[in-house]
Write a protein that binds this DNA or RNA. Structure first.
Lengths: 223, 223
DNA sequence: CTTGCAGTAATTTGATCATATTTTGGCCGA
DNA sequence: TCGGCCAAAATATGATCAAATTACTGCAAG
């Protein structure tokens, strides 16, 4: 009896390789703000903490640094990068350039089922905001975008955008820690409307709004 | 007395770690078409060929796959991805979205020295085209863009674009192998003119032209 | 007598490799 | 064609070496 807790669409190997497990674990921790930006991490510390050899840890770290989620600080320390104004500017530009396009392509393919699935996620997201549950908000928000972009069937664009999220994710958490979830406007409703109408241009516009609003939040948080 | 052959701004460790050496070597080989797209590579094959342990090789491969330069083929093989029309489309979109912006920012900062340096590279590039030296053409072409983008002082954008180059680099080689270097129009002159005039908009336009032309070449090559 | 500092020792961390273990693909015979 | 065996490759660990950071100790100066 394998531990089939969730219904895996892809018949994932029951036992993922250690480096993959380590990668996913660290990625989620970075993405949802369980690592403070700047807080140093050591390879050996992780091998101890995760109870796994150093080779898988090294592989996961090498991958995460390649994706921009971590950064070598020269002096033998690895950490989540601390964003400065310049970095936020670059990330804003790139997100504005790519994510609306993903929304556009998703809108052309979205079925009713897809939209209702996304609507459910968005409802959970709203609930998390009302509850003040930051972690849950971050998780659902991320899931919303990931699921939406998967509709676009654009693997390269999606991968690039995934990596962008790894760069600003930690800061999103910091911002929420400062300001709470109260005044987090939810711009997803416009996106959903555009999707169900298969209106690609409207979807792109709505997504740009969401991106701008999110990055503005981060920009304000870092001063 | 340290071996200060070149004036290293960054005091690079005289002896690079093996995983870094392996990474750079493989990256260059991928970038300049010494690996056929689709041709499988094994970890053990590389450890034998490069005379180095498997841990550094694994790290380099993990990094390269994260950057999109390599791809796991499921059945225990790693290879340079073969681009299909869809992939070329996505790469074209992303390059058009990002590289003109880098050219724009470079134009705002380019000094006369910078321009003359780039002009030299472009001259060598032209020479390589006339000589029919494909490898050298690819190297100089890449160097031209890398040096140009480094002027933009936009580390994140630059890194993302670097990774894009890893994705289409191998196909560029294939195209040149098919059509030779004869009819490779050089759109870099417009870029250089715009740079020396510090005309950001013109630089962006010229770069878009270069991108479109290059990707069009690739698109034609894959059918 | 206290305090700062330099030089050294000890511990920590990173890098690499050799080896053991597990998984997978291919091949052969029924 | 199918099932099982074999070989090769990938995975993972722990040991070893090197480098660097940290901690410590003793000396000298205020």
């Amino acid at each position: 009896m394998t531990d089939q807790t969730t219904l895996d669409v892809v018949p994932e190997p029951a036992r993922l390789p250690a480096h993959e497990r380590v990668y996913r674990r660290l990625r989620d921790q970075i993405l949802f703000g369980e690592f403070e930006p700047g807080q140093p991490v050591t390879i050996q510390g992780l091998t101890d903490a995760l109870g796994v050899g150093m080779t898988p840890v090294r592989e996961a770290l090498r991958r995460l640094t390649a994706e921009g989620a971590l950064e070598f600080l020269g002096n033998r320390r690895i950490a989540v990068p601390v964003l400065n104004a310049q970095a936020v500017d670059e990330l804003t530009f790139t997100r504005k350039a790519l994510e609306p396009e993903l929304a556009r392509r998703a809108a052309q393919r979205a079925t009713e089922d897809d939209v209702s699935q996304l609507t459910e996620i968005d409802a959970r997201l709203d609930a998390a905001i009302r509850r003040g549950d930051v972690k849950r908000y971050l998780v659902e928000n991320h899931q919303f975008h990931v699921d939406l972009y998967s509709l676009a069937q654009a693997p390269i664009l999606t991968e690039i955008v995934d990596h962008l999220w790894l760069r600003f994710g930690p800061s999103l958490r910091v911002v929420c820690g400062q300001f709470g979830t109260r005044n987090l406007p939810d711009r997803h409703k416009d996106v959903l409307t555009a999707l169900s109408a298969n209106d690609a241009d409207a979807a792109a516009r709505a997504m740009e709004g969401d991106v701008v609003q999110g990055m503005e939040q981060i920009r304000q948080g870092l001063m």
